[in-house]
Design a binder for these strands. Structure first.
Lengths: 215, 215
DNA sequence: GCGCACTATAGACAGTCTGTATACTTTCTG
DNA sequence: CAGAAAGTATACAGACTGTCTATAGTGCGC
């Protein structure tokens, strides 16, 4: 899937055409920087109060340039989600790729996600974007970009089921989103410092593992 | 706590002064109708694409009148959350008030929340408002309005701990928000029809109860 | 029955934001 | 160096915001 949108702005978030030209390193770095700036702003003022204009100003780029990079604000979010998910998934795959035991794998994924949430205190959690803030088209597109992360978890659950460790009756997809929801709910407590990342990871892991384990 | 804002618009979401005049039945019904309309619109287009103007139009009210009721869109959401939480909490208290057993109480609350989410398919889940969509002040105010719901759950957990049924080491407040987060994550699956409310409630209950029960 | 306070509305205002377009300058690349 | 791509300035119509003033409708006590 294309990581970028053509400057011509192919259209709605869900279905951008592949842009076969290779983007310069500079351009893609700029895209990333702008997206990160957008998330900073959103964290400060809330999505509803962030404009393309203020983003252009904060990112130190002209408004015209901004529209060169993204057709609208929704696409900025989309790019950000895609970036974060890609990065996160490849990191976890690096760490947990060799781990055959589903329980250990799941624990590791949860620990990594907790770390992720805890380290980006003032930034935003991935999970908070698939919501009612943006247009439904965008929400669907966000969900789609999230799917590699979902699959990371649901695959793990499926393997556990096949190996007889996890309950056969649970739906791996549904449970995967429950686990991510759980982590999202934990985020405020991580950010506030009420829970240390380690403690949070343990709490979520134990909740999840006990709910998932075959008795 | 005041359910309304004075027409003079006292200021920021967090701290509106008490407005001691009694509001006419008509006025408070109108407020409610407008808030519900706002949520409809947000569900259709996403918060970022809903304006006071479009809300006025859809609600069949002039823009000036809208500004008479609410100082801005954030306050509309706030009013809606307060209404829903009040309604939900009093309903659960009616149903579960007499139930002394924490496990049964928790199960009932979860079932009620699942029903709530399932019945309002195209509307919005309560949980999706405490996010990055609105200004941080508003987000805090929303969290505050959510607290009766939170307390419903955390009280239940505390009682269970005192009675020795639930693990003493878990933090009731944190766990309460985890449970609500879990329910929020279940909502899309309820809406999509993938899970029947009963099944969802059972899935969440079992996940929660097993994670919570003292071994 | 009358006036008064409250409520609703209309219309206007300056200011901001959007998305688009055109045309100019800078920077990269072959 | 020439041509392409990226970035910029500027302008535009249309929409939205929040505020204001003035006007019309409503319910209530006296």
């Amino acid at each position: 899937m294309s990581n970028q949108d053509p400057p011509g702005h192919s259209g709605r978030p869900g279905a951008e055409g592949a842009w076969d030209a290779t983007l310069s390193r500079h351009r893609s770095r700029n895209r990333e920087r702008i997206a990160a700036t957008a998330m900073e702003l959103i964290g400060e003022h809330g999505l509803a109060h962030v404009s393309m204009s203020s983003l252009a100003e904060r990112a130190g780029v002209s408004r015209a340039t901004l529209y060169h990079y993204f057709p609208d604000l929704d696409h900025v979010l989309l790019a950000w989600v895609e970036l974060q998910v890609d990065r996160f998934v490849s990191r976890v795959e690096l760490l947990a790729g060799a781990e055959p035991d589903p329980r250990a794998r799941l624990t590791l994924i949860i620990a990594q996600l907790t770390d992720y949430f805890a380290s980006r205190d003032h930034r935003l959690g991935l999970e908070q974007l698939g919501t009612l803030a943006v247009a439904p088209v965008t929400a669907r597109a966000v969900a789609e970009r999230m799917s590699p992360l979902m699959e990371l978890v649901s695959d793990c659950l499926r393997t556990g089921q096949k190996m007889g460790q996890f309950r056969p009756e649970l739906d791996p997809e549904v449970h995967a989103s429950l686990i991510l929801g759980l982590l999202g709910a934990m985020r405020p407590h991580l950010v506030s410092g009420r829970y240390a990342p380690g403690g949070a990871a343990r709490a979520v892991s134990s909740l999840v593992l006990e709910g998932v384990t075959r008795r």
